[in-house]
Computed example of a mutant assay.
Amino acid sequence: MLFEDILIIILKAVDGERTVSSPYHLLKGKKSGQTIQDIGYYKLHPYFGILPKLEKKVYDKAIQKLFDKGFIITDGQVVRMSEESLAYQPAAPSVNGWKYRGNEQLFMARLSLIVQTLSHIHQNHRVFDPVVIADDVQQWVKSYLHRIDYRNEVSCRNLKAEIAGSLSKAEVDDAAKKIVLQRLSGYKVGGLTWEQIAAMESKEVIDIRLQAIEALHTWMEIIETEDYPLLKVLLDGVIQKSSLTETARRTESYFKNGRSLEEIAALRGLKTSTIEDHFVELAMNDPGFDILAFMGGALYSKIIAASQSQNTKRLRDIKEIVPEASYFQIRLALATKGEIK
């Protein structure tokens, strides 16, 4: 999985309707109303937040390469795909950013410290420099090791068997699995840095990181859905349980108790526009959301028809065709994906 391919996939989805920085905010996991609504409009859930620490200079370098290749061009404030890029169809990676929100790193931190600790203990070396220094992870691992009776060799063998068995079932390139394993440390074995692995593979660091993320997402899906009790515990707090952001859930609770948009804004001390963002998020994710509480069926139908006839989700373009609709109503209608729920 190459970073450039992911950028092309995202930019194709928003072709001609978003600025060149749109994929950056999406990959970082920015929780703004614009980014959240774009996830639903363009079905970009897999890529949300997969690179929470993405550096702008790395992003800009990759974008510039796409410009240099003639894959993308600017059109006013938006970016468009060239004919050459439209002919290029990169394979979609097996990632689920909306589900994990970058928390695969928490899973990996726990696993790394567990493997390192068990490796040293079973070589009778109890003093070592932990690969993870975060107190919360260290305390979690300490509790976990006592729970599985880490002194018992049977428990250790079972854990090792679960790791090998579950990882072998992950349908991802062996090269990606290898990167994950190369990051692990043990007795007299140091895990490799991203830079070391990238140099060995003659690849960019960002591409190596993405390969590892794809391997972890695929692997964690196997662990979650199949019978791996020793590993499944490592997913505690890793999987996003709700499709909504925390702040949208709070707005939802007020709405279900009969509060109006304006009342919720006042009660929460937030701008009306922020609460509108939450309602758009609710419309995208809640099958039972009553959009007709905010507009009549006729207006809803006109908005959807305008979007479909012009093949656009740009609010300004739809507003010109349906001037009686507010921007908020247009956003809500688009969030339902063309169906009244």
Rank of each mutant, 00 (worst) to 15 (best):
G297K: 15
G33R: 10
S155Y: 04
P93Y: 11
H217T: 09
N96K: 15
D5Y: 04
F3I: 08
Q34T: 09
R80G: 02
I50W: 06
Y187Q: 06
M108L: 15
K178P: 00
K69D: 09
Y150W: 15
F107Q: 07
L159F: 12
I121K: 05
G165P: 02
G29P: 01
A175S: 12
T74P: 01
Y100P: 00
L184W: 11
L299M: 13
E55A: 15
K232V: 06
K69Y: 10
L113Q: 07
V238N: 01
Q211P: 01
L192V: 05
H45L: 10
V115T: 10
Y100L: 09
H25N: 06
E171H: 11
G297T: 11
M1T: 13
I303K: 03
E55D: 14
D290S: 08
V127F: 14
L26V: 07
K142M: 14
L66R: 03
C156Q: 12
M295L: 14
R259W: 13
T272N: 13
A109I: 01
A164R: 14
A170I: 04
D173V: 01
S185W: 09
L167N: 02
N311A: 13
A266E: 14
A198W: 05
T247M: 12
R110W: 13
S185N: 07
S301P: 01
R18K: 13
I114S: 00
A266H: 10
F255K: 06
R249V: 02
L334Y: 02
A92H: 13
T225M: 12
S119H: 08
Y300F: 15
K256T: 06
P130T: 10
N311T: 10
N103S: 12
D38Y: 03
K43Y: 12
I197Q: 05
S260I: 07
K313V: 05
W219D: 04
S307I: 02
I72A: 07
D129Q: 13
W194R: 07
E276D: 09
T117F: 05
E226Y: 12
V78E: 08
T193A: 06
G40K: 11
I275R: 03
I318W: 02
